[in-house]
Amino acid sequence: MPTNIGLPSLTIVFQAAAQQAANRSKRGYVGVFVRDTQAQGVHQLSSAALIPSELGVDNQAYLARAFEGSDRGAPSKVVAVVIATGTTDTTALDAGLKLIEGMSLDYIAGPPDVTAQEKTLLETWVKGRRANYYIEKLVEPNPATPPDNMGIIAFTETDDAIAAGETTYTAAEYASRIAGILAGIPMGMSATYAPLPELTAVTPRSTEEQEEAVNDGELILIHDGVKAKIARAVNSLTTIPADGNADWSKIKIVEGMDLITYYLRTTIQDEYVGRYPNTYDNKQILVTAISAYLQYLEGAGVLHPGESWAEIDVEAQEKWMQSQGIETAGMTEQEIREYQTGSWVFIKAGGRMVDAMEDFQVTFSNL
């Protein structure tokens, strides 16, 4: 007989996770590092008014820029990580990274005077986190070498070319602003052409140079003569994996993938692992709950309607059975599907991410 694990409660858990993913996608979380002798530690800030007043003026301004967002939204939280001063090594930054390992952030920006060594450390940390299904993405100013990674946004601007009237910024000093914009973009939108109304100048590039930079996986700023804005919202990925898609280079697509992966994984871990017998019926209940979760995200504009699916991964299950010395040649697919697999649960799911409107062709006929 099927075990009674409470399908309605499990479905509600996944619906709550879907709602949480949708809400988080509207107003994400940013981690911003600054170096200061005062207020060292982690400060979770819901508004710029809560920035510690004892911090240096430049550090306060750097944190405040993370809150500005764009006309498409702003982050709901900025986690300020105040680390010790001194840049001779990466000890202070490494200690700061350890302080946020228990958190889940969307974008991070290093200190405004980030060193080359620290950039390498931040890259390594983000790649390691993402390998474990965390969703941090790094806004890295002027990387020494192309990161070629969907979790690294290579923000490339000539130092001091970013100007707001008489005030100029290096790329590193403006990284928190970019991280805040990206975190505040709703999932149905992208950061492409998100305006930066305070800027009066950016790095001068010809159209060909702009296109080359974007194709090289660089997030750059452009000025159309009226206002400054983000060009194409891309990450640094340029080498597409054999099992990947070209749109993995788009920040919007990766953001959606990250949210689904993270919330699906953590919901299963928190609400399912160790709680129920590993029977076929319980696996099917989990599949049903995941399917409902994905359908919710379709309605929220995260996934393309009608294309999401989830099922027991028969191929993976059969490989596991064979690794246990079980002969599967004479078994039907349904028999493999229903076979008891110890503590292992093999499920596969999929869908198609919804992109934003960025490229247009309009034909006008003068009749």
Rank of each mutant, 00 (worst) to 15 (best):
L10E: 03
L10N: 00
L10Y: 02
T11P: 00
T11I: 15
I12W: 02
I12G: 02
I12K: 11
V13H: 02
F14N: 08
F14Q: 07
F14V: 03
F14T: 05
Q15W: 13
Q15G: 03
Q15M: 11
A16Y: 00
A16T: 06
A16D: 07
A16Q: 13
A17E: 11
A17P: 14
A17S: 13
A17M: 06
A17W: 04
A17H: 04
A18Y: 01
A18L: 05
A18P: 03
Q19F: 05
Q19S: 10
Q19Y: 08
Q20N: 06
Q20S: 13
A21V: 04
A21C: 07
A21I: 01
A21Y: 01
A22D: 08
A22S: 09
A22F: 04
A22K: 06
N23P: 00
N23V: 05
N23A: 10
R24M: 05
R24E: 03
R24L: 07
R24C: 00
S25D: 13
S25L: 10
S25N: 11
S25Q: 04
S25V: 02
K26W: 01
K26H: 12
K26R: 10
K26T: 13
R27I: 02
R27V: 00
R27A: 15
R27N: 13
G28N: 01
G28P: 02
G28L: 03
Y29A: 02
Y29G: 00
Y29S: 02
G31Q: 07
G31H: 01
G31R: 05
V32Q: 05
V32F: 05
V32G: 11
V32I: 13
V32R: 03
F33P: 07
F33T: 08
F33M: 11
F33K: 09
V34S: 06
V34F: 09
V34Q: 05
R35E: 14
T37P: 00
T37E: 14
T37I: 14
T37N: 14
T37R: 11
Q38P: 06
A39T: 05
A39H: 10
A39N: 14
Q40A: 11
Q40H: 04
Q40N: 15
G41F: 13
G41N: 08
G41Y: 07
G41M: 07
V42D: 03
V42P: 12
H43F: 10
L45N: 12
L45T: 05
L45A: 05
L45Y: 11
L45V: 06
L45W: 07
L45C: 03
S46A: 07
S46W: 01
S46Y: 05
S46K: 11
S47F: 04
S47P: 02
S47T: 12
S47R: 06
A49S: 14
A49G: 12
L50Y: 13
I51H: 12
P52Y: 05
P52S: 03
P52A: 09
P52G: 08
P52E: 04
S53L: 15
S53Y: 11
S53V: 14
S53E: 15
E54H: 06
E54I: 09
E54Q: 15
L55H: 14
L55S: 09
L55E: 09
L55C: 12
G56F: 04
G56T: 15
G56L: 12
V57Y: 15
V57K: 15
D58R: 09
D58K: 11
D58V: 12
N59G: 04
N59L: 12
